[in-house]
Each structure stands twice: as structure tokens, then as C-alpha cells.
């Protein structure tokens, strides 16, 4: 599920970085202001817990292949959205730094896809309304499974749109969606079931832990809207600006790569190292450069020419703006949803 640098244009990568950075900044403020300072050490150990838990593989029922915990939903359930988002971001950063999981440019996308959706959508709009303030096993099962599925579907959608808007992959949107969504339906279902199993275990052993996290409302109305609007604005601004400089290398091979990586993830979700490298493959050329020129063949020089800089291409600018616009639209929709939920409460 990790987004690959390979499929990412610097414009989209930068946009998602800006969105993610804004999210981190807003959440950091929120958590710092939060009166419950016991969260600070808890976030740290739970981040480390995700690493430890990911060492342990289980057999996916009826398939024989093995999987491991993603953990986004569990963190959201235990910590609440903002603290969970920071924790997920820290886990992904350490993975990117030490295990070359993901990639640096794609880190923004990955934190967004794997953090924002479970923390700010699946948890507050699916898990919480279903589970309510009095958890029981059935509610936890439904909430966590639905939350897991929807969180991952949105994450997959994020990957698809980030790839599509990057313009590097030639893959038709429809084909891409029809490859990614079913695969992630499966992954999401498994994640949902595992989350259910672990959360139910915790609930049975120590119900007060879940009761407690249900009582505290770490995310006020203002907080969520602020986060989402901040994300949206940052995305639009940087998206527009970066696209200005961006030019793309249309090349038809990445889509198969995406397909491979999607499938690869099903078998070994942790093995993301190749994303980092892969990424490097299709980068915008900021400057014309002929890397192979000195191999002696002047004749070949013209072949690899990149567009000159800055490439003021309305196409890519549009792509960036569409990406930003999309995020903003998402923010508005979420804001409205939240409002409606508040009124019905």
C-alpha cells in the first residue's frame, strides 16, 4: 500500500508533502494543547509497538498466505485521531529512513494515504458512530472491519489519484481503479478482521482502556475542520506552484509496475524497499541533461532531451490544481459531514 516514488511527479509528491506537513503541524499543536499529557509517552510506545507487532505474521484465512498488522485503525481507536496521525507519521518516517520503506518523496503521500484516511475519516465517521460510547464485541467488529476496509479503500484511491495526476503512468484511470480497489478490498478486510480481533481482545481483558478512549474527545469540532481545511489550502497552494515547474515524461510502463506493486503488497506488505528506488526512475527533469552523452556517441545526444526549464505546461499545472482542488473538495465534504453528524448528535 506504500506509494512508490516511481509513479510520482515532484509536483504531486511536493503537494502531498505540504498537505502532510500541515497535518503534522496542526495535530502537533492539538496534542500539545490537549490536557491529557499521558498521551505523549503512550504515542511513543505504541509507535514502537507497531514495529514489534509487524514482526508477527498470521495466516490469512482461506488463502494460506501471510499478512501482518497495518495498525492505523488500532492507533486511531486507542489514541484518537490527532495523536494517532502523529504516531503513524513517525512510524512511516522511521520505516522510510531505516528500512528504505516507501521513499522520501513518497513519504508525504504515504503518511497522507495511511494516516489521514484511517484517522480523520474511518475512525471519526465510521468506527465511532458505530461503536458509540458503550463498546461491545459486535459493534467493535462491525466498526473496525468497516473502518479498516473504508480506510484502505480511500488509501488505495489516494494512490490511484496521486499516480494518475502525476501523469507519469499512462494507465487509464478505469483500469487502474479496477486493479487497485479489489486488491485493497481484500487487504482492508484482513486489516479490519485483525483490528477487530486485537481490539476485542483488549476490550475483553481490560474494557476500561477502550471506555477511557471513548470518553475523551481529543478531536473537537474545530480541530478536525482546521486540519482538513489546512490540508486542503496547503495542497492547492503548493500544488499550483509546483506544477508550474513540473513537466512530465509520459511513459507507458509504470502502470504495470503499479499493478505488480499492488499485488506484491498483498503477499508482503512490509517489503517496500523497491518503492524508494523505483521512484527515482521517473523524475521531472528540472534541467536539460544528457547523461549518456559522454559515452562517445554525440549522435545520440538529442534522444534523451528533457523539456527545458521551467516547463510551463498547462497540462501539469492543471494536474496540480486538480489534485489540490480534489483535496479541498474532500475537506469541504468532510466538514459538511461532520456538521451533519454534530447536528444529529
Amino acid at each position: 500500500m506504500h506509494m512508490a516514488d516511481a509513479l510520482l511527479s515532484p509536483a504531486i509528491g511536493g503537494t502531498m508533502w505540504a498537505a502532510t506537513a500541515t497535518g503534522i503541524a496542526v495535530c502537533a499543536k492539538k496534542v500539545q494543547k490537549d490536557l491529557d499529557d499521558s498521551k505523549i509517552p503512550l504515542m511513543g510506545v505504541l509507535g514502537a509497538f507497531i514495529f514489534a507487532a509487524q514482526m508477527i505474521n498470521f495466516t490469512i484465512p482461506a488463502t494460506g498466505s501471510s499478512g501482518h498488522l497495518g495498525g492505523g485503525m488500532i492507533l486511531a481507536i486507542l489514541l484518537g485521531p490527532c495523536a494517532a496521525f502523529l504516531t503513524i507519521a513517525s512510524v512511516l518516517t522511521v520505516q522510510a529512513m531505516f528500512f528504505a520503506d516507501g521513499g522520501l518523496l513518497a513519504l508525504g503521500c504515504n503518511i497522507f494515504n495511511l494516516g489521514v484516511f484511517p484517522c480523520f475519516i474511518a475512525y471519526p465517521f465510521i468506527y465511532r458512530p458505530i461503536v458509540g460510547s458503550t463498546p461491545n464485541p459486535t459493534r467493535i467488529a462491525i466498526g473496525a472491519t468497516l473502518g479498516g476496509i473504508i480506510g484502505l479503500q480511500l488509501g488505495a484511491l489516494g494512490v490511484v489519484f496521486e499516480t494518475y495526476l502525476s501523469g507519469i503512468s499512462e494507465l487509464p484511470l478505469k483500469a487502474f481503479l479496477s486493479a487497485m480497489l479489489p486488491i485493497h478490498l481484500g487487504i482492508g478486510l484482513v486489516e479490519g478482521l485483525v483490528t477487530t480481533a486485537v481490539v476485542t481482545f483488549v476490550w475483553k481483558a481490560r474494557p476500561e482502556i477502550l471506555q477511557y478512549s471513548a470518553l475523551s474527545r481529543p478531536l473537537g469540532n474545530l480541530g478536525l475542520r482546521k486540519v482538513l481545511i489546512g490540508l486542503g489550502v496547503a495542497a492547492v497552494v503548493t500544488g499550483g506552484a509546483l506544477s508550474w515547474f513540473a513537466s512530465s515524461f509520459p511513459d507507458g510502463l509504470e502502470w504495470s509496475m503499479a499493478k505488480t506493486s499492488g499485488k506484491e503488497e498483498l503477499e508482503a506488505p512490509a517489503s517496500g524497499i523497491y518503492h524508494l528506488l523505483a521512484g527515482i526512475q521517473e523524475k521531472t527533469a528540472f534541467l536539460p541533461d544528457y547523461g549518456f552523452k559522454n559515452s562517445g556517441e554525440e549522435a545520440a545526444a538529442s534522444e534523451g532531451t528533457a523539456p527545458s526549464w521551467p516547463a510551463v505546461d498547462t497540462g501539469t499545472t492543471t494536474a496540480g490544481l486538480v489534485g489540490g482542488g480534489l483535496t479541498l473538495a474532500l475537506a469541504v465534504v468532510i466538514g459538511l459531514l461532520f456538521r451533519r453528524r454534530k447536528q444529529t448528535l
Binding site: 484465512p61 488500532i74 481482545f201 482502556i209
Partner: peptide, 30 residues
Amino acid sequence: RGLDMKTFAHLVGQLLLRTIDRGQRIHLAM
């Protein structure tokens, strides 16, 4: 080899509980 879901949940759940306890103890130490 391999863990079925129930054993897995038990193992990871146990680890999670210990982690949460540790978080509380660290908070106390702080």
C-alpha cells in the same frame, strides 16, 4: 508455521496491553 487469527490476536493483544501499561508507567516516571 503461521499463526491463525485467534492466536495472533491473543499474542498481539497481549503485547498491546503490556505496551499500554508500559506507557502508563513511563508517564508516571515522567
